[in-house]
């Protein structure tokens, strides 16, 4: 377990790099609401359910809406969809289909740019707000501020990157929509609240003690609260609500992972040096006792020696 804890920062960095790679390779998200998609409306007096079931294995299918008799396709040519439909129609000639290409009102590029700009703006707001408070109320200097709040920024960048990768991975099988946007802000807002409540109330000396434990405990508490709320609400709302609610939980887990990794991370060279330093300190603390015993002159012995002479 200790080894896993030591390895966690490296795992996080690897996850971050892999996530970015996946994000770039996938051009953001594979299936999403921000690109053209094909919607097929299925109408008929009978066998509609059977027809919809037969569409399940057709290429490019991303969603079947059985309540409204819609099938959604993306990343596939319209003619391929029509060809597939005609094949299935041979068995169900009574079914009528309408194929239309839907255009989104916001493009993927625009959505990603908006997201990046807004996240940056939030971080700048946080920096300005917290810097003013820290320097005014606690007399921190810029160096101290940068040292402790630098963690917040690094933490945010890492966790946003990992979350983007996870969402990109999910988009290979599921159509991503604005719930993703919400999960990004869950992450930023939860992370901000942990830092805010932790850093704003304490001065730098108080903060140095139990620094990691406090942060990790807070992340754990938030996760427990979110888990209870999400699980119970998912039961109330039905199975389809699991994915949007899971976005919240995943965002909090990523937050926990990066918090722990960032706060416990030490470069091996420095860690060894630190361990060495601690060992030395322990030795130097014990040494004086021994030397005192060794060099304290025993008055009785002195007297004996004198007598022998």
């Amino acid at each position: 377990m200790n080894r896993l804890k030591l390895a966690l920062p490296y795992i996080t960095v690897i996850l971050f790099v892999a996530s970015l790679g996946l994000f770039v390779f996938n051009h953001g998200f594979k299936y999403d609401d921000y690109e053209n998609y094909i919607r097929v409306q299925i109408n008929g007096t009978e066998n509609v359910d059977l027809f919809i079931e037969r569409l399940r294995d057709t290429s490019g299918l991303i969603e079947l809406d059985k309540a409204n008799n819609f099938a959604y396709y993306q990343q596939v040519d319209k003619t391929v969809v029509e060809e597939n439909l005609n094949n299935v129609k041979e068995d169900y000639p009574e079914i009528e289909t309408t194929v239309e290409t839907i255009y989104p009102s916001v493009s993927k590029k625009q959505r990603i740019i908006d997201l990046a700009l807004t996240t940056t703006l939030i971080i700048v707001l946080f920096a300005a707000f917290s810097y003013v408070t820290k320097t005014r109320a606690f007399n921190w200097n810029l160096k101290e501020y940068a040292k402790y709040y630098g963690l917040y920024f690094a933490d945010n960048i890492l966790s946003l990157g990992i979350l983007a990768g996870l969402v990109s991975l999910l988009s290979l099988v599921y159509k991503i929509n604005d719930y993703v946007l919400f999960s990004f802000f869950v992450l930023v807002i939860v992370k901000t609240s942990i830092y805010w409540f932790k850093l704003l109330q304490e001065d730098i000396n108080q903060m140095k003690t139990h620094f990691v434990e406090n942060f990790v405990n807070d992340s754990r508490k938030i996760f427990v609260v979110a888990l209870i709320l999400c699980v119970l609400l998912a039961v109330g709302m039905g199975v389809r609500s699991v994915i949007p609610l899971a976005f919240i939980l995943v965002a909090i887990i990523v937050n926990f992972l990066t918090n722990y990794s960032i706060l416990t991370f030490q470069v091996p060279k420095f860690r060894r040096a630190l361990e060495h330093q601690v060992e030395n300190r322990e030795k130097t603390q014990t040494k004086p006792e021994k030397t005192e015993k060794k060099y304290v002159p025993n008055p009785k012995l002195k007297k004996k020696n004198k007598k022998k002479k």
Partner: peptide, 30 residues
């Protein structure tokens, strides 16, 4: 003192949401 911390946090988050609303949420389902 912690109540003041909560107040600052609320004002900060309100500003953040206003920013998101202004720049990101035009015609958005969220």
């Amino acid at each position: 003192t912690f109540l003041n911390v909560i107040n600052y946090y609320c004002i900060f988050i309100a500003l953040v949401i206003f920013t998101i609303y202004r720049f990101l949420l035009a015609g958005n389902t969220m």
